[in-house]
Design a binder for these strands. Structure first.
Length: 272
DNA sequence: CTTATTCCCTGATTGC
DNA sequence: TGCAATCAGGGAATAA
């Protein structure tokens, strides 16, 4: 599940190898009817062909390719999407959903087992990212912002962290990790946290994301970088998918419960 | 406005 | 062992 650290790793890897490259031909699988949003797939392919990639940015979990005529190619990998860079065409795969051939013979190959991934070709970024909250690693994301946000919510604090309109880019892995680092139970109602605890949570969110970014993200099941390599942070998580294993701090077995409809891992002793 | 639920999709996992 | 039911999960849509 690519979250902010994984998507940012993809962005950083791809930028130097595709910036300045022109997409010579695009193909979308007829077996991926929901992949391309807002445009018929044929029209999407026709419009993106001939465009040069000038830059790549990221907003939350969205990867944004800036094209030479001002159009934006936005990609969301959702659960199982991968954007692979191949130097000699896309290998056969039953899960290959779209291909983008470049003018140097390389290709970007969109592979997505579960077909939840989506992409857009738009002239206005806000058509895709308008509802997103601030970037958690930006100056805009302050302890005061987080405090005000949590104060008006009665849902569990984890639900607030997963809400992309509140904070952009946190998913199930880093919500659990941040709450462990902050020593806060994922079940706690968001508005019950003191300002001091919110301050700790703010730092913990940044810590969890920055360390994971340094490890090139986490590969629990599906995530691979553009070269097909795994990230490294799955080996360092404190609670995520460590159900029954001892907490690194106190030795108490890590518990798994459902919060906000998502499996949630936490230490019942360290997180109150 | 917020919150809870359902749906999409398919391989992996669980349960009888 | 075998096969069916359930799970996993981001986010849109829907309902309350």
């Amino acid at each position: 599940m690519p979250e902010l650290p994984e998507v940012e790793t993809i962005r950083r890897d791809l930028l130097p190898i595709v910036a300045g490259r022109t997409i010579t031909e695009a193909w979308v699988s007829p077996n991926a009817p929901r992949l391309v949003q807002l445009l018929p797939p044929e029209e999407f392919c026709r419009q993106i062909a001939g465009r040069t990639i000038e830059d790549i940015s990221r907003r939350g979990k969205y990867l944004l390719f800036h094209l030479d005529n001002g159009l934006l190619w936005a990609v969301h990998l959702r659960m199982t999407g991968r954007l692979l860079h191949e130097t000699a065409g896309c290998p056969e795969s039953p899960y290959l959903r779209a291909t983008f051939h470049l003018d140097n013979g390389a290709s970007l190959c969109f592979v997505d087992l579960r077909k939840f991934g989506t992409m857009w070709l738009v002239d206005d970024e806000s058509l895709v990212t308008a509802k997103l909250g601030p970037e958690p690693l930006s100056d805009e994301f302050t302890p005061s912002y987080l405090h005000a946000l949590l104060k008006r919510r009665t849902a569990p604090v984890k639900a607030a962290l997963l809400d992309q309109s509140a904070i952009a880019g946190i998913g199930n892995i880093y919500a659990d990790e941040a709450l462990f680092l902050a020593g806060i139970s994922p079940k706690r109602s968001a508005n019950s946290l003191s300002r001091k605890r919110v301050g700790r949570l703010h730092s913990a969110i940044r810590e969890a994301l920055e360390v994971a970014l340094g490890d090139r993200g986490s590969s629990f099941r599906d995530y691979l970088d553009p070269s097909g390599r795994e990230g490294g942070h799955q080996l360092k998580v404190k609670v995520f998918r460590r159900t029954g294993l001892p907490c690194y701090v106190c030795g108490t077995p890590i518990q798994r419960i459902k919060v906000a409809g998502r499996s949630t891992h936490f230490c019942p002793k360290c997180q109150r």
